[in-house]
Nucleic acid binder design. Structure first.
Lengths: 120, 120
DNA sequence: GCCAATAGTGATAAATTTATCACTATCTGA
DNA sequence: TCAGATAGTGATAAATTTATCACTATTGGC
C-alpha cells in the first residue's frame, strides 16, 4: 500500500512541478531574485513561515540546482543565497505566470474565497 | 497552534500557486486541453492516480473556475469536462513552463534523482 | 442472476508537508 | 553577565494531501 516514493516524471511540466512543489519555494526564488539574499532578510520578507521551513526549502532548492549558497567565514556568520543560471532562466517564465495571476486577480480571488465561505 | 487556515495571497504568483497546488492539477488541465474530456479517459491517461483523487481535483479546478463540467442525461451517464476561458488563457504560460522543463530536462532529472540516491 | 462500464461518494489509513518548540554556537554591546 | 543577532539542527505534533477499500445506481450483454 502506498508504494510510490519516486515521483513520476514524464515531461517538462512534471519536472517543473517537482522542483517548485513546496509552499514557499516560488516566493523564495522571487525574493532572492529581488536581491534579498541573506536568510534573515528572507525571513523578514516571509514572516508567515517559520525559519525552519524556509531553511529546509532553501536547502531543497539548492539540491535541485536552483540556488547557490555562499558561507562567508566572518563573525557573526554571514550566508548569502543566489540564483543559479538555471533558476535565472526560469524567472522570466515565472514572471509571466505572475502577470497572468495579476491580470486575473479579481476573478481568482473571488473564486478562491468562495471555497472558504461555503466549505464543501 | 497551526493557526492559518486561509492562504496568503499577496500577489499574482500566490494566486497561481493556490489554484495549481495539487498533485495532478496541471496534468489534468493539460490532458483536458489535449481533448481528453471524459473522466474515464482522464483516468486512463493518468493511471498512477486513483479515480478518487482525480475527481476531487477536478472538482477543485471546477470550483476555482478553471474547468467546466457538463453532465449529459444519457444512459450510461456521460460527463465531459472542458477548460474555461480563464484556463485557456493560462495554457500558453503553462506551455512555456513545460518548454523550459523540456529544455533543461537532463539537468533537472539529474539533480532530482540525486536527492533519491543520497537521502539527506 | 452476474459481470462490466459509466460516474461518483464515504470512511479510513498512510504519507507528506508544515509548524512549534527547544536547543547549539559565536560575537557584540550594554 | 545577559540579551540579541547571526545561522542553523533535532524532536515532535498538527494539518494537509493522497491512497485504498468499499460502497451506490443504471444499463447492456451473456
Amino acid at each position: 500500500m502506498y508504494e510510490r516514493k519516486i515521483p513520476i516524471l514524464n515531461c517538462g511540466l512534471d519536472l517543473v512541478a517537482e522542483i517548485l512543489y513546496g509552499k514557499w519555494k516560488i516566493r523564495l526564488l522571487y525574493f532572492i531574485n529581488e536581491g534579498y539574499k541573506r536568510p534573515s532578510e528572507l525571513q523578514r520578507r516571509i514572516p508567515e513561515a517559520s525559519h525552519r521551513v524556509l531553511f529546509m526549502q532553501l536547502k531543497e532548492l539548492e539540491e535541485h540546482g536552483l540556488v547557490t549558497k555562499v558561507i562567508y567565514p566572518e563573525v557573526p556568520p554571514r550566508v548569502e543565497y543566489g540564483l543559479t543560471e538555471l533558476a535565472q532562466s526560469l524567472m522570466p517564465v515565472l514572471q509571466q505566470l505572475g502577470q497572468w495571476g495579476d491580470a486575473h486577480q479579481d476573478q481568482l480571488l473571488q473564486q478562491i474565497m468562495k471555497r472558504y465561505e461555503q466549505p464543501s
